[in-house]
């Protein structure tokens, strides 16, 4: 067993897990953060995307122990009780998700992109979503929503994330 302590969504949490445990399993099974989805479990679909130290990663391809001592942001860390994150709000406004299974991963990929590049081109958004498979939407309304969220985030001086 290895003891892993991560700073997840601003809160320090510790668990003792078998060494082969992935970050995704740690988040879902030990920390009960089930927003990140287990899709393919081999890094093809992107449904498990979370942000580790500012970078979007497939949490199914990262061992929990590799995340020890790092900052992890999951979909649960975006909204507050009374307010959706502007990216989530834009996804709702544009009906960007249909079945929704890819949603948490897509939104985390978009968040990592906009944190790094507040004014991305359509091609840059497509590149950022390249690892997130969606079977329902054709990505069209996701791209529109991310452009809209980028505009809103640029105009907002206050960081509203937790």
């Amino acid at each position: 067993m290895v003891t892993v302590t991560i700073n997840v969504n601003g809160e320090k949490r510790t668990a003792s897990v078998p060494p082969e445990t992935t970050l995704l399993r740690l988040l879902r099974d030990d920390f009960n953060l089930t927003g990140s989805k287990l899709g393919c479990d081999v890094g093809d679909c992107g449904a498990c995307t979370v942000i580790v130290d500012g970078k979007a990663v497939n949490s199914c391809l990262m061992l929990a122990a590799q995340a020890d001592g790092r900052d992890v942001l999951t979909i649960e860390g975006l909204a507050t009780m009374d307010r959706l994150h502007p990216i989530q709000k834009a996804f709702e406004k544009y009906a960007s998700l249909q079945c929704g299974f890819c949603g948490p991963g897509v939104i985390m990929s978009a968040k990592a992109l906009l944190d790094e590049n507040p004014d991305p081109t359509v091609q840059e958004i497509r590149d950022a979503l390249g690892g997130n498979l969606c079977r329902c939407t054709g990505y069209v309304k996701m791209i529109e929503a991310i452009q809209d969220a980028a505009r809103i985030l640029r105009d907002e001086p206050v960081e509203i994330n937790r």
């Binding site: 093809d44 497509r126 390249g130 054709g138």
Partner: peptide
């Protein structure tokens, strides 16, 4: 039978619609 070799369109394959 998996997404590694059954290829579906990504955001990079989608045309302007």
């Amino acid at each position: 039978p998996n997404l590694t070799n059954y290829i579906i369109p990504t955001s990079l394959d989608m045309p302007e619609v």
